[in-house]
C-alpha cells in the first residue's frame, strides 16, 4: 500500500444550533482551515470527497450546493458519499492508492438543528418490518443496553462512568459544546427516558463540519491501516452485545496491539464497552480524550472527527491511535483507522 499521512485537520465548533453559516460557508471555512493546517492550498488538492446527508439537511443535493465553498469551477475531481465524512476519507485514501494524485481532501458537514435526526434514523430502518413501527435510535439503543445488562457484560454504573468521563473531557475540548458536569453517582439518580438508558446516555446532537487533508508526503501521522466492515442491517439478525464487524475491520487495519489512544464513535454510553471488547482493549487505554461523539454529535461529521482527534493524539505523542466511525443502526457499519507517527 502507498503510505498516506494526515497532513491537516480542522473542525468547526459543534454548536447546538448554527443559524449563521449555510452549507457553502461551513464547507469553505472548514476546508480552508484544514488546508491551512496542512500548509497547502486549494490548487494542491488532487481529489476531494465529501460526506453528508440530504435527509439531515432537509434539502435535495445539499452536497452540490456546498461545493461553492470549495471553488469547484473549473471542475475539480470530486466525489461524495451519503455517509459520515469518515467514509469520504476512506474513498480519498483509496483514490491516493491509484498513484496519480498526491493530496486529497475529505470533509463532512451536517446540522441536527434543522429537523429530527431521530426521525431520519427511524426511516433508515427496514421499510417493511421496522420503519412502520416507529422505533427510533434511542429505543433501539435501550434494547441493546438491556441485552448487555442481561448478559452480565455491563452495569448501569458502567454507562454512567462513560457519561462522567465524556462530559469532563468534552468540556476541555473547545470545539465541543459545554455540557453540565455530571458525576456517575449523580447520573444514576436521574430518571430513565428509555429504560435502562437515561437522557444523558444519549448524544448531544450538534451542527458543524470537519475536514482532513491527506498527503502521500510524510508531513503528519501515518495511516498504518484503514478498513471498514458491515453487519446485518436488521438488528434482530445479530447478537447486539458484540460487534463482529468492528473486530473484523480492526484486524484488517493491522490489529490493536500497542494502541494507546482510541477515539470511538459511540452515540450511546452503553455502546462503548461493546466497541472496546470488539477491539480487544479495555479502559487502560486513553478512551476518546476529545470527549467523543457523546458530547459533540454532529451528523455525518462525528466519525471523521474521531480520525482527526486520533491524529491530534499522535501529534501530541501517542504511539498508536485508533479511530472508529460508525453508521447504521446499533453499530451496524464500522470503520477503523489506525494512526502512527510518520
Amino acid at each position: 500500500m502507498r503510505p498516506v499521512y494526515v497532513a491537516g485537520f480542522a473542525e468547526l465548533p459543534h454548536l447546538l444550533q448554527d443559524n449563521l453559516l449555510d452549507e457553502p460557508e461551513m464547507v469553505q471555512r472548514v476546508t480552508a482551515a484544514a488546508l491551512a493546517d496542512a500548509g497547502l492550498g486549494r490548487d494542491d488538492v488532487g481529489f476531494t470527497c465529501s460526506g453528508s446527508n440530504d435527509y439531515v439537511m432537509g434539502r435535495p443535493f445539499s452536497f452540490a450546493t456546498a461545493l461553492d465553498g470549495l471553488g469547484a469551477w473549473p471542475p475539480i475531481r470530486e466525489s461524495h458519499v451519503e455517509m459520515d465524512g469518515a467514509w469520504a476519507l476512506y474513498e480519498a485514501w483509496v483514490r491516493l492508492q491509484h498513484g496519480d494524485v498526491d493530496v486529497a481532501l475529505a470533509y463532512g458537514f451536517g446540522k441536527s438543528s434543522l429537523g429530527s435526526v431521530e426521525a431520519v434514523r427511524t426511516l433508515e430502518l427496514d421499510p417493511y418490518s421496522l420503519a412502520p413501527l416507529g422505533i427510533g435510535p434511542l429505543p433501539l439503543a435501550a434494547l441493546q443496553a438491556r441485552a448487555l445488562l442481561d448478559a452480565g457484560l455491563a452495569t448501569e454504573a458502567d454507562f454512567a462512568a462513560v457519561v462522567e468521563r465524556s462530559r469532563r473531557d468534552g468540556n476541555r475540548n473547545h470545539t465541543a459544546p459545554m455540557t453540565e458536569a455530571m458525576s456517575a453517582a449523580h447520573a444514576l439518580t436521574l430518571p430513565y427516558i428509555s429504560s435502562p438508558l437515561r437522557g444523558h446516555d444519549g448524544p448531544v446532537r450538534t451542527d458543524g463540519a470537519a475536514a482532513i487533508v491527506l498527503s502521500t508526503e510524510p508531513v503528519g501521522p501515518r495511516i498504518a491501516g484503514i478498513s471498514h466492515c458491515i453487519d446485518a442491517h436488521q438488528p434482530g439478525f445479530r447478537d447486539l452485545t458484540v460487534s463482529r464487524s468492528i473486530a473484523t475491520a480492526a484486524a484488517a487495519a493491522g490489529g490493536t496491539s500497542g494502541v494507546d489512544v482510541v477515539e470511538l464513535h459511540v452515540e450511546y454510553s452503553s455502546q462503548e464497552g461493546i466497541v472496546l471488547r470488539a477491539l480487544g482493549l479495555d479502559s487502560s487505554v486513553s478512551v476518546s480524550p476529545s470527549g467523543g461523539a457523546l458530547v459533540a454529535n454532529t451528523p455525518m461529521v462525528a466519525g471523521l472527527c474521531r480520525i482527526g482527534h486520533a491524529a491530534n493524539a499522535v501529534r501530541g505523542g501517542a504511539k498508536r491511535a485508533l479511530a472508529h466511525a460508525t453508521s447504521g443502526p446499533l453499530l451496524q457499519h464500522n470503520l477503523i483507522c489506525i494512526l502512527e507517527p510518520a
Binding site: 443559524n19 453559516l21 449555510d22 460557508e25 435527509y55 432537509g58 434543522l114 429530527s116 417493511y128 412502520p132
Partner: peptide
C-alpha cells in the same frame, strides 16, 4: 401493497448571507 407514510419536518434556517 401496504401503506407506509413517510414524513419528515424541518425548520430550515437561511444562514446569515441569505
Amino acid at each position: 401493497r401496504f401503506k407506509a407514510p413517510v414524513r419528515l419536518d424541518y425548520t430550515v434556517t437561511a444562514g446569515s448571507v441569505t
